[in-house]
Design a protein around this nucleic acid. Structure first.
Lengths: 219, 219
DNA sequence: CTCAGTTTGTTCCCACGTTCACAAACTCTT
DNA sequence: AAGAGTTTGTGAACGTGGGAACAAACTGAG
């Protein structure tokens, strides 16, 4: 029912809508208008309606959206109705935080293994999982059908880890190492760079201070 | 020398270029073409040149860019040549990881305080800093002239922390809590949502599996 | 049934971002 | 000094995204 490709900008906002819908459900809200949902998600209502229209026609004119139904449709579109086994490589401070992050497990993602190159840490228990050796990557990927890998290693190790992931059959990588990864076509990499975000903030902050008060960016 | 506003998309890429330049300097590369720098940064060379042209004319036709000089110019444009005191609130797993993240301190950012609402953790030493009570926020902000705050608390606490930050005078917030913050005009919020990134990957992964191999997204 | 009120889905238009292609400007050889 | 070779900076074309505005479609009252 959705043969058309969904714009990338829309895809990036779907998780936000999903979060807003969950929050509404927690407050026992069964139905909502695009206006309500838009404010809950922090976007313009016209943009919200256009985004949703790319998925299909799941609202009712004059009424609004059924919260539960819309949530299911978005989940299905993203693919959260299926199971996504995930492997995390690099169990330092950040990997530790990711392993314990409830936002992963609560949305269809299942961490099946924590790997670290430092074999002295093998066996250590983190978030209910034993840390295993990085050498086991390929076996684990095949055993659980892992398609998504998370890299939380230092920058120096990231490319080697990515190469190993790709050759093991992983086709989607979430990279927290501050390093541009090179991978073959067909493999997706999303980079989350903690320091970049701060730098972008610093740029705007500097402009707020030095220039005339022409206004900051959107909030 | 740069009176014109720099496009938002360009600002978001400047940290990437900065990282690539640092990496080149580590390899003792003194000069480079837009092509070399572009591949190191993982972007198109035309886009790189246009981005840099917004800062000024720092290259030499027929020759390329002086790595050190260009790095300085980008740093100055972002504002990294000045000191940015930062406060981190919420010292759970993630806050712990952020406090230890070298990418912050190595680029002009200086973590001046770690705060947590759980007073039983006050005094605990993390990354060379003692955890202090959240109540001290306003005093710390005034004492050190903090302009940037990092929120690494659970979602439920995030809005209250943001409100307190704003009233203490902080005008830029980096939010890791999975929650849309509402702040007054003039305050910048950047949200980093770990779970959203995984969901976006899952969407593309699903399409790779179910549809004809029309191709994945860019790598 | 009809009409007023509400809210979605969509069309149209504008702004922004990306890419191509090329003139301008530099180096180096002869 | 002149010309061949390189590489930057930019103008122009193209595509994507955002927002206003409106028609289509629903509800409910009389």
């Amino acid at each position: 029912m959705s043969p058309t490709r969904i714009p990338e900008a829309t895809v990036a906002r779907l998780p936000v809508y999903l979060r807003a819908l969950n929050s509404l459900l927690d407050s026992d809200v069964r139905s909502c208008s695009s206006e309500e949902l838009a404010t809950a998600a922090g976007v313009n209502s016209a943009k919200l309606r256009k985004d949703l229209s790319h998925l299909g026609s799941y609202g009712t004119r004059g009424v609004g959206y059924d919260v539960e139904y819309l949530r299911y449709q978005i989940s299905r579109e993203i693919g959260l109705t299926q199971d996504w086994p995930v492997v995390i490589v690099g169990i330092g401070n950040l990997g530790h935080a990711l392993a314990n992050y409830s936002g992963f497990s609560s949305r269809g993602f299942r961490t099946v293994a924590l790997l670290d190159a430092d074999d002295s840490r093998t066996g250590e228990l983190v978030a209910g999982l034993k840390i295993r050796s990085f050498d086991e990557l390929t076996a684990i990927v095949h055993e659980h059908g892992v398609a998504i890998g998370v890299i939380a290693t230092p920058a120096a190790a990231a490319q080697a880890v990515a190469d190993q992931m790709v050759s093991a059959g992983i086709r989607s990588i979430l990279n927290f190492a501050p390093m541009v990864l090179s991978v073959p076509d067909g493999v997706d990499v999303r980079m989350v760079d903690l320091s970049s975000e701060l730098q972008i903030l610093a740029y705007h902050e500097q402009r707020k201070s030095t220039l005339q008060p022409d206004d900051g960016v959107v909030a």
